[in-house]
């Protein structure tokens, strides 16, 4: 077996170890690579900035599951921080079963930094089964969709719900999602029929699929995975879970590109030799 064959048949565990080492080094010793803010992230920030705390209510949709949470949860943390900082009333709701528990984590994080009153500034309504059907049902009557919130408090008497009888009473929707239901369902049941401003925080894998809806203006702002969270942290001026991992992300990409190049070089040299 020549060295080219050996190179092509390198043990997979060597590849795994290399990836692990390359990702861990910058986590221990950050490189501080500057981060440019994407236009779609800037738009989400601007939309939140434009909300009027005295009048506007935001709908904070927690539609992510544990599998994709490392990509989306940092987005939810920083956007919630921004909403709390601006004093915008925020209603949290979930159409994915894990959502309410992540919402509690977000509330815990935000309440440590800002003086928020549960039921007045923020509420975690809980989970509604039925995916797209549930979104339609909630949109038509958000005030009656839940009799009790996730913490078992009666919803009707909460100050935060005052004046909310239809989805059009919501000024801005930000939907954090890992898959279905996600932007497709919201565009079909809410943004399309009622024209409510809709922004999304999605997993990196789904970004290319969402682009037609960003171009058409149906999705008004988009947070693109962990990088989207890091960019938002830069805008808010509160570096957190996203920014800390961006250096490792960079080196990880370089390594994968290195793998592709070495793999191809070995393949073509070997092929040439065989001819």
């Amino acid at each position: 077996m020549n060295w080219l064959d050996k190179l092509q048949q390198i043990d997979r565990r060597v590849i795994y170890t290399l990836l692990l080492v390359v990702l861990l080094i910058p986590m221990f010793r950050p490189l501080g690579i500057p981060l440019e803010v994407n236009m779609t992230t800037q738009k989400v920030y601007d939309l939140v900035q434009a909300l009027d705390p005295a009048r506007d209510v935001a709908l904070f949709v927690m539609d992510y599951s544990p599998g994709g949470s490392p990509d989306v949860h940092p987005q939810a943390l920083i956007v919630a921080e921004h909403l709390a900082q601006r004093g915008v009333r925020t209603i949290m709701v979930s159409f994915v079963d894990a959502g309410p528990m992540f919402a509690e984590q977000v509330l815990d994080h935000v309440s440590k930094k800002y003086d928020i009153v549960y039921g007045t500034d923020f509420v975690n309504l809980g989970y509604l089964a039925g995916m797209e059907t549930a979104i339609k049902n909630f949109a038509e009557a958000p005030h009656t969709a839940f009799e009790r919130d996730f913490r078992n408090n009666p919803v009707a008497s909460m100050p935060i719900m005052a004046g909310i009888t239809h989805i059009t009473d919501i000024a801005f929707i930000i939907d954090f999602q890992t898959g279905d239901p996600g932007y497709n369902a919201f565009l079909k049941q809410v943004q399309g029929p009622y024209g409510v401003t809709y922004a999304a925080g999605i997993v990196t894998v789904s970004v290319p699929n969402a682009m037609p809806f960003v171009q058409s203006g149906q999705i008004s702002g988009l947070l693109q995975g962990l990088r989207g969270a890091a960019e938002y942290e830069v805008l808010v001026g509160s570096p957190g879970a996203g920014a800390a991992k961006m250096d490792a992300q960079s080196l990880g990409h370089l390594l994968i590109i290195g793998f592709i190049i070495v793999g191809n070089v070995a393949y073509f040299l070997n092929k040439k030799k065989a001819v």
Partner: peptide, 19 residues
């Protein structure tokens, strides 16, 4: 546990990129 289940896919993506 759910996050770890999905995280290990990164190793397979790296391996697939090489092979």
């Amino acid at each position: 546990l759910g996050a770890a289940m999905f995280a290990i896919i990164a190793f397979y993506v790296a391996s697939a990129s090489y092979r």
